[in-house]
């Protein structure tokens, strides 16, 4: 039931919101007062948010530069500058950090691509087709995600063990096996997000394409997916980060150090009884967060661009 206070969603062209679009050229410079009014306060809010977001991370950064550092003592913040921890990351054969990094990237990208594809397909079906059980299905997918996973490790191990006996390539200690498990979670809230976005793409577009003789698949792959690029990128980023940070499932599946991911590997630095190596751990955490920042940096323009409008008009 949509409450009356909420206006009905609009079906227009999914143009980027003009005043908010990054592609709009910056406004001509005016007086400082105007700057304060338009951008100044935004900077203030942004800076406050940055302080909140980065303040614990500063500790990690400081710890990563201090070979004997701890995470608690604040007066020691940036008292030592040394790259030793970063060098250590790549020199201890017990902790093959470079392997972990590469594995995480491979698993992360593959999972992101796979789950966006699977999710987008499902979202397209939910958005464009009318079939029995559609709403129940959509609801069911989201509800399934709510299952408390705390105990799942026993079941996942059993499943993978059984699979190992038949298909060793997707079984225990195989990265492909891990990716498949992640793909199992591809249908869910992400599907819903895409479903919502697809719904904002007017049906008239598909219909006119259909009249021109385009097939369903063609419409989906060449038009819908292009038009919904921002959300696809957001989802793949979310999926990438989620994969990168997963510890529970990854640590069940991957046991050989050279095959493990950053999340499992890094955890081992601090999970040694009583002799945690905070410095190296912090350095590793900083390096492992970098790809996300860099990727987001480059993908931003696709997320906030007016690409959609161009495609619709064409």
């Amino acid at each position: 039931m949509t409450s009356p206070a909420i206006p009905a969603p609009v079906t227009g062209e999914p143009l980027a919101w003009p005043s908010g679009s990054d592609t709009t050229s910056p406004e001509p410079r005016r007086g400082p007062q105007h700057w304060l009014k338009v951008a100044g306060w935004r900077h203030l809010v942004g800076l406050l948010a940055l302080v909140f977001a980065l303040f614990p991370i500063v500790f990690v950064l400081s710890g990563s530069l201090n070979p004997t550092g701890s995470l608690t003592s604040p007066d020691a913040l940036f008292s030592v500058f040394s790259g030793q921890n970063y060098l250590d990351l790549f020199s201890d054969p017990r902790y093959p950090f470079a392997d972990w990094f590469r594995n995480s990237m491979i698993i992360g990208f593959t999972t992101a691509a796979g789950s966006v594809f699977i999710g987008a397909c499902a979202a397209y079906a939910f958005s464009r087709s009318r079939f029995r059980g559609r709403r129940a299905g959509l609801l069911g997918l989201i509800l399934l995600q709510m299952f408390p996973q705390v105990l799942a490790y026993v079941a996942i191990f059993l499943l993978l063990m059984t699979l190992t006996e038949v298909f060793p390539a997707i079984g225990l200690d195989q990265q492909l096996g891990l990716i498949m498990i992640y793909l199992g979670g591809a249908l869910g809230t992400n599907t819903y997000l895409m479903y919502g976005f697809f719904n904002t793409i007017p049906k008239e577009i598909d219909e006119s394409a259909k009249i021109d003789g385009a097939s369903d698949a063609r419409i989906f792959f060449t038009m819908i997916l292009r038009l919904s690029l921002p959300i696809l990128i957001v989802i793949s980023l979310l999926s990438f980060i989620g994969t990168l940070n997963d510890f529970m499932i990854a640590s069940i599946v991957l046991t050989t150090p050279e095959r493990q991911t950053l999340a499992i590997g890094l955890y081992q630095y601090v999970n040694v009884s009583f002799s945690q190596n905070w410095g190296v751990f912090s350095a590793g955490a900083i390096l492992s967060a970098l790809p996300v920042v860099i990727i987001f940096w480059f993908l931003q323009r696709y997320i906030v661009s007016g690409l959609t409008s161009g495609a619709v008009k064409g």
């Binding site: 609009v10 062209e13 999914p14 919101w17 003009p18 904002t200 921002p230 959300i231 957001v234 997320i303």
Partner: peptide, 9 residues
């Protein structure tokens, strides 16, 4: 991401 789907009209 969601802001991008708001209609400008």
């Amino acid at each position: 991401g969601a802001i991008q789907s708001l209609s400008s009209d």
